[in-house]
């Protein structure tokens, strides 16, 4: 009985968390990627600057939100922007916000590390050996369509309430994009470069480390970015039910207390942290692979 309630609420809440995050995960990337196209006049040029267009679109969103909040006049369903802002400030001053962000962020880092530890060696073996690939690939294709969220009910039985379940769910979600991109990167590494290294008497192990790895790195980093976004979307769902701490827990906590401004404040923080992580990963990509395409634009 309890279990079925947990399952339904998990599915419902997971859906919200996932769609909410997906919007944030995609939009900022395209904004950063947009190049200013120079118009004929200065005014036009200003209005095409990415920083200006982002600010404008953000302002429009806040205004629309405010208008709808005033119109519905239902602070629990939709609190107004000032109410959310002041809730955000209170939570930040209280230190509670920072505590929950750091709990969730540390879980994210642990799960990413665990996923990488599994996905990178396996990805290299699969990319380098058709034999390994032919054994592992069918299993993966079977597991891949199962959303990380689907494991939450089972995870509750195995891990109980606590920090392990969100970490497990996130590691599961992060594992697939990391693995698939590693395989693709290794497969796509330039055969000519491998051949060149062979003609210089470089050992196979060193060729993997010095030629295949850097060749695959840009693709692997893309996988890590996708993994981060997916894991961050999944953590909220996992913490909503399976954890006594973290951002997802806080959202659920304030929902039960009917404190919508706090719920919204936490949702904004989820978006901000996800966006910042993605920006940092893009920075890291430019740092690690300055030769890869797109580096010239940086």
């Amino acid at each position: 009985m309890t279990q079925s309630v947990a399952e339904t609420s998990a599915a419902r809440l997971a859906g919200t968390a996932e769609t909410g995050e997906a919007v944030h995960a995609v939009a900022p990337v395209s904004l950063v990627g947009t190049l200013p196209v120079l118009g004929p006049t200065t005014a036009r040029r200003v209005f095409r600057h990415p920083a200006v267009t982002s600010a404008l679109s953000f302002a429009c969103f806040i205004l629309a939100w405010w208008a709808v909040a005033v119109w519905t006049a239902s602070p629990i369903q939709l609190p107004s922007p000032p109410a959310v802002a002041s809730a955000l400030i209170d939570l930040a001053q209280d230190g509670e916000l920072f505590d929950n962000v750091s709990v969730s962020f540390v879980r994210l880092l642990i799960s990413m590390a665990a996923a990488a530890l599994l996905a990178l060696p396996l990805g290299f073996s699969m990319g380098l050996s058709e034999r390994v690939n032919s054994y592992v690939d069918p299993l993966l294709e079977m597991l891949r369509p199962i959303s990380g969220i689907a494991w939450i009910p089972l995870g509750l039985f195995i891990f109980g309430i606590g920090g392990t379940l969100p970490v497990f769910i996130m590691a599961y979600v992060a594992f697939f994009p990391m693995l698939l991109n590693t395989v693709a990167g290794v497969r796509g590494s330039d055969r000519k470069l491998v051949a060149a290294a062979r003609t210089m008497g470089v050992s196979p192990l060193r060729i993997v480390r010095l030629v295949v790895l850097p060749g695959a790195l840009p693709t692997i980093i893309v996988g890590v970015r996708i993994a981060f976004a997916g894991a961050w979307a999944a953590i909220i769902a996992a913490e909503l039910i399976g954890s006594p701490s973290g951002l997802g827990f806080a959202i659920e906590w304030y929902r039960e207390l009917l404190m919508s401004p706090n719920v919204f404040a936490y949702i904004i923080v989820v978006s901000a942290v996800g966006y910042t992580c993605d920006l940092l990963l893009q920075l890291l990509r430019r740092r690690l692979t300055p030769w890869a395409s797109g580096a010239e634009l940086a």
């Binding site: 470069l193 051949a195 060149a196 003609t199 060749g215 890869a292």
Partner: peptide, 13 residues
């Protein structure tokens, strides 16, 4: 036997 390839095969990184 050293080889020089048509597209040079330099390591881009």
């Amino acid at each position: 036997r050293g080889v020089m390839f048509q597209d040079y095969a330099l390591f881009p990184w």
